[in-house]
């Protein structure tokens, strides 16, 4: 066992973990923050995406001890201080960008990382950026649309809601 310390959504946390403990496991099992989901074991699906020091990473593919001393952001920390949805979350709801909700935390975290670097991405850029986030419900239509809307683009001309 080794001690790991980090801030998660701005709150300092620490715990004793094994070498093999994954960041996703630390968040879910040690901290009880179950918003981060695990949907595969080959680093493909992206349901587990969180931010580590401002960068999107797959938390099921990173050891908890590698995040020692880092600032970690998860889906639980995305809403605004008064608890209302942030711009991206609100756009996902407004444009039906989620169905079962399982991939959603990773999608929102990836979308946030994208918009930080590229505040007004094209449709093609969004689709390409989401290469590491699988969704089985939406056919991606409304996810892409929601991210375009969250970046302030007019999505009225995109066929259906």
């Amino acid at each position: 066992m080794a001690q790991v310390s980090m801030t998660v959504n701005g709150v300092a946390v620490s715990g004793d973990v094994e070498g093999r403990t994954l960041l996703s496991g630390f968040l879910r099992d040690h901290l009880g923050m179950t918003g981060t989901h695990v949907g595969c074991d080959t680093a493909q699906c992206g349901a587990c995406v969180v931010h580590v020091d401002g960068q999107a990473v797959k938390s099921c593919n990173m050891l908890a001890l590698e995040a020692d001393g880092s600032e970690v952001g998860t889906i639980e920390g995305q809403a605004t201080a008064d608890g209302s949805l942030n711009t991206i979350q609100q756009a996902f709801q407004d444009h039906h960008g989620l169905q079962c909700g399982f991939c959603t935390p990773g999608m929102v975290m990836s979308a946030a990382a994208l918009l930080k670097d590229n505040p007004r991405p094209t449709e093609a850029e969004i689709r390409h950026y989401l290469e590491g986030n699988l969704c089985r419900c939406t056919g991606y239509h409304n996810i892409v649309k929601a991210i375009m809307a969250a970046s302030g683009q007019d999505v009225g001309s995109i066929a259906a809601e």
Binding site: T34, Q78, A79, L85, Q89
Partner: peptide, 22 residues
């Protein structure tokens, strides 16, 4: 009506309750 989905709020904030969360 295209009412917005009320379940979305919990899914978008990490507050869902999936079986593996239990």
């Amino acid at each position: 009506a295209s009412s917005k989905r009320r379940e979305d709020v919990r899914f978008l904030t990490g507050a869902g309750n999936y079986t593996d969360d239990i």
